[in-house]
Amino acid sequence: MLARLASKRLLEIRQAFRQSPQTIRSLSTALNYVSSNLCFLASKSFDLDSTGGTCAFSDFIDLVCLFGVCVQHIDTPENNPNVPWEFNEANKPKVNEILSHYPSNYKQSAVIPLLDLAQQQHGGWLPVSAMDAVAKVVEVAPIRVYEVATFYSMFNRAKVGKYHLLVCGTTPCMIRGSREIEDALLKHLGVKRNEVTKDGLFSVGEMECMGCCVNAPMITVADYSNGSEGYTYNYYVREHHKLHYYPFSHFNEDITPKRVVEIVEALKRGEKPPHGTQNPERINCGPAGGNTTLLGEPKPPPCRDLDAC
């Protein structure tokens, strides 16, 4: 009986969320998660009616974020195959430039750089019609492009802010307090994960290991505020994708979430806060207060000394 009630309610929720574009991204997986746990819900007498759909759903979102996001596309007014999309005049030469890097019979090799260009043109995310446009350019079926775009987590298939803040969720950062960083961000911005702030400036997501665990915890700011202006292919990662790393050392529950808020505020003012470690005592990945080891010239390993053998 409870299970039936829950499933009925679930259907209602499903319909309610179909209309809400903001929460679309993780919807299916969330609901799916719900359906697989219906019995659990029913047994706990989860009163969906009194808490209200949104509240229950936000719980699911949190759960879902642990499991990743849904890959299936759901039509929304701003993201459906009928929305016209094409590369703008500024980017068209870049498209040809990218295509020229590959043999004409392997055009599909250009799919990733083109998707990236499309994403920058479209303010940091890829609507399904942009993927269709890329498919047309590289002359493959759209599904082959969807496969690539869903594979790479760097392609955002739902709307993101101009500054997409990505908090590392891998173990070293997590034990150094990335959860608290994220909480501080979410609380300060007043959004949920993968949601965009009302002014369209910020969104918070998760990224896995940024490869600088010595400076854990870290966040990445993907800066889409300049679009793809001045973009050149060779430069792509360093300059214009603007992947700034903000590693925090001297991590302390009181200080660092504060620093993260400062960065967000600076970005909001249009400043570009310095990237790299946020601890003034450290240089890059070095320890605070200068090196403590490896001060002299390192000795060569004895086994390499062939004469000694």
Binding site: G68, Q72, A141, Y146
Partner: peptide
């Protein structure tokens, strides 16, 4: 679908444990 039937509808979406077969758009 892509080799015998000649309809490019189905694909492998996502990755890792989130990988699924689908058409992406309905």
């Amino acid at each position: 679908a892509s080799e015998i039937a000649g309809v490019q509808d189905l694909g492998m979406l996502g990755r890792g444990s989130g990988e699924e077969i689908g058409t992406y758009v309905e």
